[in-house]
Amino acid sequence: MTVSYEDVVRAAGRVGGHVLRTPVLEVAPGRFLKLEQLQHSGSFKVRGAFNRILSAGELPPGGVIAASGGNHGLAVAYAARALGVTAEIFVPEVTSPVKVAGLRALGARITQVGSIYSEAAEAAAKRAAETGALQVHAYDQPEVVAGQGTTGLELMAQTGGVDTIMVAVGGGGFAAGVAVGSGALGGPGPVSSGGSSSGGARSPRAEPGSGPKIVAVEPERIPTLHEALKAGEPVPVQVSGIAADALGATRLGDLAYDILSRAGARSVLVTDEAIVAARRTLWAEHRMVAEHAGATAYAALLSGVYTPAPGERVAIMVCGSNTDPATLAHGDG
């Protein structure tokens, strides 16, 4: 079970009428921010949700069901409402009130259970077995990963190609999808070193393996990929810290491990303090509202955990904005 570049291309055709082509901002020469926090439902996850549901054909009477730290649930609820099906979302008790309120506004049935994502996922799986609802996994389904990969496909067309993509990791579905969609595993690679950040798709050159390198950024207190790479397989980790409501998977997904290890992804760890600082910088310098998970990749660049080489073109995924805006000016909760 894996995801190919062709799977991502097909996903792009499937979800194109349902998701936004989010902008890319060049904040400095060769430094790009991909603004997925402006996506429907406030994160990239709506891409995978639409692709999973639309790939399923006729949906069961029970509708769709998902477990989430919040963002995936919002995406599934948004997609379900757009497609006229019911959604039942299980979230842990630590889920941000902003995200719970958003789920209610989208008309989803909500169950808060457990203290971490894995406990909500267990409850959701049990409920799906009872109702026959279509499960939309937060990160470990091929259709979900392929949908997230459309972000990488889009980024490469908008920038004309980059050398490095920095992306936050929890369960790993986003980073895995971006790796495939950007050509890090082969398929079309970068087209030039001088692309416009606002241009349309270009004709890429087919050079297997010529895509960008992937820098996976994880909170020090949720090192799912870091520990998986050390162990040679996904292993359980402890979950805590300021980004746990969105990056709080206790184990990297099997698909993500397969893809990211084959892509040679590098894992770097950032502190909660660095994440907070990056989130404040996004607001203070660019007036961008980002949740902590959304600022995690940027934290590695700003804190010096990852230092680009001279002339290296780097894209950073700003992946979510579901947060209380009041905390941007008055401190982090």
Rank of each mutant, 00 (worst) to 15 (best):
S210T: 07
P212R: 00
P234F: 01
V215K: 01
L229S: 04
K230T: 12
T224P: 03
A206S: 14
G253C: 09
A284K: 13
V237I: 10
E233M: 10
A278I: 10
E233W: 11
Y298W: 13
A297F: 06
I214T: 04
A256Q: 08
A249N: 11
S240R: 14
P219E: 04
E285D: 15
H292T: 11
V239W: 06
P223D: 00
G253H: 07
A290K: 00
R221P: 01
G241H: 04
S267T: 06
S267L: 04
R262Y: 13
L252Y: 07
Q238E: 15
D272Y: 07
A284Q: 11
M288V: 15
E207S: 11
A228N: 07
A284E: 14
A244C: 11
R221H: 12
W283I: 03
T271R: 15
S203I: 15
A295H: 04
G241D: 05
T250E: 14
A246E: 12
S240A: 14
R280E: 08
A299I: 02
V235H: 03
R205P: 06
D272F: 05
I222L: 05
A297K: 02
R251A: 01
R279D: 02
E218N: 09
G200W: 05
R280A: 03
A284L: 10
V268A: 07
M288K: 12
G253A: 11
Y257N: 07
E227H: 14
V239N: 08
L225S: 01
H286R: 13
P236D: 10
P212K: 01
V289A: 11
R262F: 12
V268Y: 03
L229E: 05
G264H: 09
V215Y: 09
M288C: 11
L252Q: 09
A244S: 14
R279S: 06
R262E: 13
S210V: 08
I214Y: 11
E207C: 12
A246V: 15
T250R: 10
S203W: 15
G264W: 03
W283M: 06
T250L: 09
P204M: 12
T224R: 01
E291R: 04
T250A: 14
P236F: 03
E273W: 00
D258H: 14
G209H: 05
